[in-house]
Design a protein around this nucleic acid. Structure first.
Lengths: 354, 354
DNA sequence: GGAAGTTGTCGAAGCGCTTCGACTGTGACA
DNA sequence: TGTCACAGTCGAAGCGCTTCGACAACTTCC
């Protein structure tokens, strides 16, 4: 079994610029060949307990760490995963952070590090990393319906995992919440309580225009569910701004007074929405039922705790890394949609009989 | 001058696993020595226009990219900056993202990539990266007063930039907003309007307990400014939770009814605070003046737009990268505190006479 | 018209690691 | 007692790049 390196070797800190100890130094120190040190580290060949001990002692004494570049060059594996993150975005930033956190933690569990790429850089970032052999796999967040970042990878077999599902995933592995099912669950909740007129308050118009995969899937799921459950369902894109939320709501209450239930897919709009509803005399849940798609902590900390389908960012992130690792082992790619879970907190009740 | 590589070389996409073209392939293609190709790429020696053209054509034809590992090994430079990010945190997440975005973008401008490290991993992450030569420099966010992540780097001369200022920065370069000055500006604003009793609503108690550098500096600046301006200034740590904000406010209004101005250093508490103030009949600004330290977009999108000192995340992030680059050029380290800027939006007015 | 640069190119020596084949014991087995 | 298998170790050949010194072919300059 391979030797684990601890952070605190007790070795004298090496001044930077001073030559770092190499595998040859360790070998000399332990009185063995460099290859033997390598095998102690990798565990790829049997080593006698005694030799192993001498080598490990040498490693500790010198504070040795293998040079990542040399290792990558010789082994053709970088132990790095590239992660494409949307930085400036209409997507809820804390949710993105949850994804990033989960992915990073899970990568470390597999002894991988994470190279941060930005969506802003476009396809160029992906090809730089892949063609320069900077990473062994790539995880792409915030996938759009028509995903330009991936064209250069099609047909190369390079391990890729998408968080989100583009129109033609093709050979690429994907993971995501099943947004269509999530929308259905939300509508079912309201319909089950007796609501017959519901409305979706969705993301910023820009998100739909950009073809953001999950937003489109949620909207489609909403419309489909409304249809099949026989309730009327209108859709409204909403910006995050206080005033905009208020104006959209005012219009909705005016144009569609029959609406008694809202499905909200827009974390940022939740808090202003609840305020505006109260201001309009439509206190939640008596005056309006609300079901949201948002992280649990947001649902819980609203003025009225919300019935919500949570965004399983941690699960999705972890799963994305697992799918990447499985591809590195040569296993085939898969597409995975995680089932939604609705937590009832009391923001939806049967509509008032009119 | 070095050749710039474009993303779209027009070369046939190489199947992954198929051998990537090497510098030797390009050399053969162009009928020159590998070293010549290298010099075309780096611009470190003069090359005739004709040879350069042949080499560039070869590069384009083969879709060649230098192998990052080989390059790092041979040149002892990775073109990677390590970035230690606090992932799970009481700090405002969108602000962290702004830092990360600014740093990433600026790194790319300098042709560097970013390796994502988490604060959770502790000192081990830093030494892994430094000793394994995975990066040429490290930027550390969310620095604490007593910073354990850096011990292993002291005295090594490895390029480090801290965002925040620990108790003993010593040899390390630091950048940050001048939080003490920012607090002073806030207090001055209120004192200048005639307020004589002000209060600081600060971060979660945990942030202070942890010794988070900027929170402590802001608090110290607040107390010092209140003292020197002759106003009374009390300090209250506040969690982000709706109910907690409300209870802290109730207690404050009850115990210190003379307070007419609040300085808020807690983005998450702003929105609940404004609600609670209104609920308590202390509408902003007539019933209570508020000055915040928060990002501009948050100050602008509150129910009442807030007078605020903005957090110059983009500037700080960019500057951090610049300081890292300057260290890579061998220049000495510096400590930099960016001056605060207060934007007046109308949430602070003279106190009611009374 | 030779000494003294310049300019443009090449070849070879690494950078520090992994990995393959080869080698040496040693015990098991016949 | 010879043969095999296997555990344990070594040496050497790369991985793909940068960089240094060398060198040929020109210019310049007195």
């Amino acid at each position: 079994m391979p030797t684990t390196m601890s952070s605190d070797t007790g070795a004298a800190p090496l001044a930077y610029g001073e030559r770092m100890p190499t595998i040859a130094d360790v070998a000399r120190e332990a009185g063995v060949a460099p290859s033997t040190v390598s095998y102690v580290l990798s565990g790829k060949r049997t080593i006698s307990a005694e030799t192993r001990a001498r080598v490990e002692a040498g490693i500790a004494r010198l504070g040795y760490r293998p040079n990542a570049g040399a290792r990558a060059l010789a082994s053709a594996s970088t132990k790095i995963v590239g992660l494409v993150v949307p930085l400036r975005t209409d997507v809820n930033v804390p949710v993105i952070m949850q994804f990033v956190a989960a992915i990073t933690v899970e990568c470390r569990r597999h002894d991988y590090d994470v190279l941060l790429l930005t969506k802003d850089e476009g396809p160029e970032a992906v090809s730089r990393v892949v063609q320069g052999s900077m990473a062994d796999a790539i995880i792409v967040m915030d996938v759009e319906a028509d995903e330009p970042r991936l064209e250069s990878l099609r047909g190369t077999g390079f391990p890729v995992v998408l968080i989100g599902v583009p129109d033609s995933p093709g050979e690429f592995a994907c993971v995501d919440l099943d947004f269509a099912a999530a929308a259905r669950v939300c509508v079912e909740r309201l319909a089950g309580l007796g609501h017959t007129h519901v409305s979706l308050l969705g993301a910023t118009p820009a998100v739909y225009d950009r073809g953001t995969s999950y937003a489109l899937r949620f909207r489609a799921g909403f419309e489909e569910a409304a249809r099949s459950l026989g309730v009327s369902g209108s859709v409204h894109a909403v910006g995050a701004d206080h005033r905009e939320v208020e104006s959209v709501l005012d219009r909705l209450l005016h144009d569609e007074p029959e609406v008694t239930g809202l499905v909200v897919h827009n974390e940022a709009a939740l808090s202003p929405l609840l305020q505006s509803l109260r201001a309009a005399g439509r206190e939640v849940p008596e005056g309006m039922s609300v079901v949201a798609l948002c992280p649990d902590d947001i649902a819980e900390t609203q003025a009225v705790p919300l019935d919500a389908v949570s965004i399983p960012a941690t699960d999705v992130g972890r799963r994305a890394v697992e799918l990447a690792m499985s591809q590195l082992r040569g296993e085939p790619t898969v597409q995975e949609l995680l089932p939604p879970h609705l937590t009832v907190r009391g923001s939806a009740v049967p509509p008032r009989r009119g």
